[in-house]
Nucleic acid binder design. Sequence first.
DNA 1: TTATTAAAAGACAAAAAGGTCTTTTGGTAA
DNA 2: TTACCAAAAGACCTTTTTGTCTTTTAATAA
Lengths: 146, 146
Amino acid sequence: MFNKETEYALRGLIYIKLQNLKERRPGTSEVAKEIEAPPFFIAKILQRLVRFGFLKSLKGKGGGFFFDPDKPDIPIIKLISATEGNRSFSGCSFGLKQCDSNNPCPLHEKYVPIKEALNKLITEETIQSLAEKVYKEGLSLIEVMK
Amino acid sequence: MFNKETEYALRGLIYIKLQNLKERRPGTSEVAKEIEAPPFFIAKILQRLVRFGFLKSLKGKGGGFFFDPDKPDIPIIKLISATEGNRSFSGCSFGLKQCDSNNPCPLHEKYVPIKEALNKLITEETIQSLAEKVYKEGLSLIEVMK
DNA sequence: TTATTAAAAGACAAAAAGGTCTTTTGGTAA
DNA sequence: TTACCAAAAGACCTTTTTGTCTTTTAATAA
């Protein structure tokens, strides 16, 4: 569905948001451990997210990552276009550059409502709404042993 | 949505099926040209599809690719698992190895019906049903100038 | 004002996806 | 039975994705 960078970014951002609610600013190694992502890789990903303006960071003792409280919630479609650049479900499943009702691929008609549902999902859900869901319902961001 | 190999395979198989209906057995360069795929790459892909048993081929003059008329239709989910190995929409959008109603990711609940629709689509549609649609509705497998 | 801490920057590397090309093998037809 | 044709096999290459590591920069606290 999503690539690895997007997956780690999603889990990482949600983890950071949850910690921010507890007045904490986690650093890269904490995030890596808690979401089970490769430490150096998540460091690079979080760095990019800061550059994109999704996150803020502080260096030095007590530093770490946090959300700017003044900024609006981040719909995950925005995250995805930052990490994957617009592609994905927006395109044609057959790879036609211009697949629409005028020049449909043979899957077009049945694929359109699915794409629409997906786009609705990633437009409506935000990092914050997902974090809230994790918090309220006690969900996990990693594998759990039962 | 799908990777390049799957896209080319889909378009290529449908093109071959359409030609078979006209008692023709297209070769790699014809397929490449007609579906706008890289010639050497589609050659390799068709080779693999023959090995997988989706297609038959004949070498030498008058040779080319064709479907065994005795074999059942090929649901595109079978093609996809051959070219991409089961992954895709079957997994969790968050990358959790075990994401289900017991241990759901925060997108799980809303993503499940979408996955189900996708799986229904690729289970019900076959190379042959898509070829028929292309034939009956005069669809194109490449870009068209209007 | 120095030691320590943690992110930023960026080089580097492995693996996978995507693509190209040459040689070999097995058919067909003259 | 030879000449030719087209797929099979497989080596090779490029780009993208995924991941690792070292050095630099900036903040904090002693």
